[in-house]
Design a binder for these strands. Structure first.
Length: 412
DNA sequence: TTTCCACAGGAAGGTACGGTCT
DNA sequence: AGACCGTACCTTCCTGTGGAAA
């Protein structure tokens, strides 16, 4: 075992944390129009009027959350100057799949840890009553930021209730404003018309960053995060180009830059170069897929393994019928209850959503009909490595050839 | 032009579970 | 203990689809 020790290393980074998602820069680059409209929409707060409900939409990593934090910080600061009683609550709706769950989380935002509501068991109307009571107890102007609000799906009852709370007499002592942030462009369109009109009094669309804007964003962060000359020529352009390709996502571009710099640091390099970026990109991609697979439930993994084993010695995409047959055999071998074909279709769709596999729609007409076929989106070894825990646990060998053989033997 | 196939995926409903309240 | 509450996970049923064959 080699001797190992830690020592501070600050030859590259001035402040690595300033590349992180949580950091709100002092200046936001390339979002001037959006900030201007947002600022106007928030103005009533300072005037002591009813706040607007605001809806922000745009893909991930285009500055919605960053701009919101930036403006709300400023608003909080100015409201103290003008003696306005302002409370802001930011809630990320990730993992919350209904209005009910969001409402409970919101109530708990106002409460001490010894007084929290449990996540289940309460009737919805009581949760809402408690929420309105918390609003009234807090008083003043309250801005509720619901980040990634599209997670709640088509259950928009909370989004219906909140903007109407005051006019319905549910709250009397507080002025309430809702700021909804959505990554899903279709979410707003799918809301009931009455929800849409009340929630989205002001709509602000955040377009993706183009490569040039991404470069500006990166330059700004580089200046506060790294020492001079730590970044080689072309690195920023390269990260920005990848970011632009990934849907104009500044967060991804920043993550990539940080990962590249970490690689350089691990090699005791004095500068971050394009090779570091390429290496980091491979690693990030790999991590994304690995994490996605590792978090899958057993049934999903069995469906995925069924496809892997079919693709092991076959170039054509596998149709779901065949995947299902293999899946049933695998369930047999590993003593899992097989789900129905319909359910496995859902599994495959979810795995596809992670980018692990890809589907192709085929239509061969009569008599073959129309069907979906799937193939792997990444190499077999990586996928198998990511589900090795399940494979070991149920005694499915990681050697796909063995499984193919056993499976053939069963069906024979 | 119509028929026909194999299937995708929406809709609806059941069940079990973790929770509260009386 | 037993009535309720909301929800994850599943099954069953069924309609729509689009291109080759008839």
């Amino acid at each position: 075992m080699p001797e190992i020790s830690f020592s501070p290393d600050d030859s590259l980074y001035r402040d690595r944390d300033k590349l992180s998602e949580d950091y709100t820069p002092e200046d936001i680059v390339g979002r001037d129009d959006e900030i201007q409209r947002y600022h106007t929409a928030l103005q009533p707060v300072i005037n002591g009027e009813d706040p607007n409900n605001i809806f922000l939409y745009g893909k991930t990593g285009v500055g919605k959350t960053a701009v919101t934090r930036y403006l709300l910080n400023q608003l909080q600061h100015d409201s103290e100057t003008y003696d306005i009683d302002l409370t802001t609550v930011e809630l990320n709706c990730e993992g919350l799949t209904s209005s009910y769950q969001v409402a409970i989380k919101l109530v708990n935002e106002f409460r001490d840890s010894d007084n929290r509501l449990s996540n289940t068991g309460h009737p919805m109307h009581e949760v809402l009553e408690q929420l309105f009571t918390e609003f009234d107890n807090t008083g003043g102007t309250i801005l509720i930021v619901l980040d990634e609000v599209d997670n709640i799906g088509d259950d928009d009852s909370l989004l219906y209730q909140l903007p109407r709370a005051r006019s319905n007499g549910n709250i009397e002592d507080a002025r309430l404003g809702v700021i909804g942030i959505s990554n899903d462009l279709a979410f707003r369109e799918n809301l009931r018309p009455e929800v849409k009109s009340s929630l989205a009094e002001v709509n602000i669309r955040f377009p993706p960053y183009d490569a040039e804007e991404l470069q500006e964003v990166l330059h700004q962060r580089v200046s506060v995060s790294f020492y001079e000359d730590a970044i080689a020529d072309g690195v920023i352009q390269l990260c920005a180009a990848y970011g632009a390709k990934d849907g104009g996502d500044a967060r991804k571009a920043l993550d990539l830059l940080r990962a590249a710099a970490d690689h350089a640091r691990a090699k005791d390099a004095q500068t971050v170069d394009e090779d570091n970026v390429a290496e980091a990109r491979r690693e990030l991609e790999r991590e994304e897929v690995m994490d996605g697979i590792a978090d899958l439930a057993d049934q999903h993994k069995l469906s995925l393994y069924a496809l892997v084993s079919l693709q092991h010695n076959q170039d054509d995409p596998s149709r779901s019928k065949d995947i299902y047959e293999r899946y049933q055999e695998l369930c047999d071998i590993s003593h899992h209850d097989a789900r129905t074909l319909r359910r496995v279709r859902d599994f495959l769709g979810e795995i596809e959503g992670l980018g692990v596999i890809e589907s192709i729609q085929r239509n061969q007409g009569y008599p073959e009909g129309k069907y979906n076929a799937y193939e792997l989106g990444h190499d077999e070894e990586m996928i198998l490595a990511a589900m090795s825990d399940l494979l070991n646990e149920v005694g499915i060998h990681e050697d796909v050839a063995d499984v193919v053989e056993e499976s053939d033997r069963i069906s024979a």
